[in-house]
Design a binder for these strands. Structure first.
Lengths: 343, 343
DNA sequence: AAACCTTACGAAAACGTTTGCGTGTGGAAA
DNA sequence: TTTCCACACGCAAACGTTTTCGTAAGGTTT
């Protein structure tokens, strides 16, 4: 088993100095053409590749972006990662992905681990626990050590840094408006508990849309779900015998679960009750009926986040001091779950 | 913006040598209790963390596992990653994930990049293109440089290394058997082109099951799909007016697409046609009717792959020379799409 | 022949660690 | 007083690079 070949070995083999080898490989005019060719031939033969670690140490940068997300088995987050990777690869950056599993502790650990030399900067969507706990010391600390951080989707207002978000309230308003324009009047919302920032914002958008239509907000049409994994019974109880003609769900799972529940309760989607979701995942696309939804354009978010970060990493200090918040436009994707044609 | 603090800075500040600081932080008895406490207090104050890069260089290992998968936006692969991360974190390893996007070139580039110092070993599921091209030099090369590789799911028989797979043929046979035992006789299969190893194996399993039941194999019941992204029309044409009572799909997408198509063609699932899929993703679980499927236990695969790799990384040379293939058991998850109770 | 300039290369420092070994200091034993 | 031994610490090498600077050899100019 041959080991990785280093400059030193090549130098020894060819009976020149390490610096000569290094320069020869870089086609430095300092080195005679003869030596250059000899060295390059040898390096090729032995498949020499400069050691990234040594380079990182020397250059004091790793050319690596750390991405920390709450869940890895999650369609939206993976699309974001896709966007990040795309830009990163173009610009010669590597991407390290860690999931916090929605745990504050794991988020901190991952961040500290990556911060101690493995990454030059971070793209981060915070864990639920972190939002609940409101402890952001790890983020502040990372930034104060000179590593830029870009927050996306689940961001933190109190932390001053670059951010990439969608206008959740606006998206929710668009969704609710869509329901209103197709004639729905009694619209229920399936949302999360308030400490999840995006859930709260989407609820606000829903309320705003209602107000614009002079429809009074009704407590009994709002369900704030805590335990996402067992939402089915909760949704089922909530929807039971409720007089509604539409449901706005703040995520994909709530939307399909609502569709299922309504089905079981003998109601037709979209004829009896229209449904609109949030996040354009595979579920929405393939469900029957296919679900109208608000697309967050995850890949775009990833692209923008990566660009912001790399700008900061490569920018001079003038750029470094200003922070930007990019708002990605959402879009309404109309599908079958809000088609009222059969009436 | 304070920079990351190093041993050198602490040493200077405290007017001792670098080695003293290093040893003090490690609680070496060589250093007086007094100095030790002083150093540790200072280090804590300035939030000293040893630089991973420097450690990697010194120890000639990075404590990172490189994972390369064909697609990142893919439920099965993310579950595998979840498993890998779990084990890796337990054992103090980092995980770098790269996607090849099913491109041979990108697979090679990613591998070479990670191999030149960023990772100690690899967990890999090869790209479609790689399987088609049958060019495995990058894998062989990586291994010959002393970095262990574990292949999973889409493996390569010709490459000698650790592997984690499911028994695809057996799983497919189980699936087909299930259809046969509930009384189906005319079973179509939706599979991939042959060069995708898992597709071929699953097709074999299907055929084996038929043979065991003395049912002749019929060409017209087998559809090999090339372009996965546009499978709907292909499946629709194939299924049109076909006299069948069941469909076995080798993946989730084919399964739900078949369900949709059949629906559009006025057939009921499962009453008229039963459907069974492969891979237990969200689609199968949430679709209406929910889909019976073969679970590959992605997380388990990740766990086993990570364990194999870490064993090899930390093992002595005796272990290093033998290669193991772990076969993960599949299991049948019965859901509504194969319920024939209404007959 | 002296002074100078190219050419072609090597030495060494630096990045941040760890660690084996050397060494100065002080006190205790002889 | 001499010898010896802990003790507490520093030196230096090593990991693999890159890059600045120094320099020997040889040739060219006056």
């Amino acid at each position: 088993m041959k080991q990785k070949v280093t400059l030193k070995q090549i130098a020894k083999e060819l009976d020149v100095s390490i610096s000569t080898v290094s320069k020869a490989l870089k086609d430095s005019v300092e080195i005679s053409l003869d030596t250059r060719q000899k060295v390059k031939a040898f390096a090729k033969l032995y498949n020499y590749k400069p050691n990234n670690i040594a380079l990182s140490l020397k250059n004091r940068k790793t050319k690596t972006i750390g991405v920390i997300i709450p869940e890895i088995v999650h369609h939206f987050f993976t699309t974001v990662i896709g966007g990040v990777e795309k830009v990163a690869n173009e610009k010669g950056y590597n991407v390290i992905i860690c999931s916090s599993n929605n745990s504050f502790d794991k988020e901190v650990i991952n961040m500290e681990m990556l911060a101690s030399g493995s990454a030059d900067g971070f793209i981060l969507s915070v864990a639920k626990e972190t939002q609940l706990k409101k402890d952001y010391h790890h983020i502040e600390e990372t930034m104060s050590q000179g590593m830029p951080v870009v927050l996306f989707d689940r961001i933190i207002d109190e932390v001053v840094c670059d951010k990439v978000i969608i206008d959740d309230a606006k998206g929710a308003q668009t969704a609710t408006n869509h329901l209103l324009t197709i004639g729905c009047k009694k619209i229920a919302i399936l949302t999360t508990v308030d400490y999840i920032s995006v859930g709260k914002l989407r609820t606000n958008g829903y309320l705003r849309a209602l107000r614009a239509y002079d429809i009074p907000e009704k407590e009994e049409l709002i369900l704030k779900i805590e335990d996402i994994d067992n939402c089915e019974t909760e949704i089922s109880d909530f929807l039971k015998d409720k007089d509604i003609d539409a449901v706005f769900a703040v995520n994909e799972l709530f939307a399909v679960t609502a569709a299922k529940v309504l089905n079981n309760q003998g109601k037709n989607v979209p004829e009896d009750v229209a449904i609109i979701g949030f996040t354009d995942g595979i579920l929405s696309k393939h469900f029957i009926p296919s679900l109208t939804t608000i697309s967050q354009h995850g890949e775009d978010m990833g692209v923008r986040a990566a660009k912001l970060l790399i700008d900061k990493l490569e920018g001079d200090d003038a750029v470094t001091e200003e922070y930007r918040t990019v708002i990605i436009d959402t879009s309404l994707i109309q599908r079958q779950s809000t088609k009222k044609t059969k009436s």
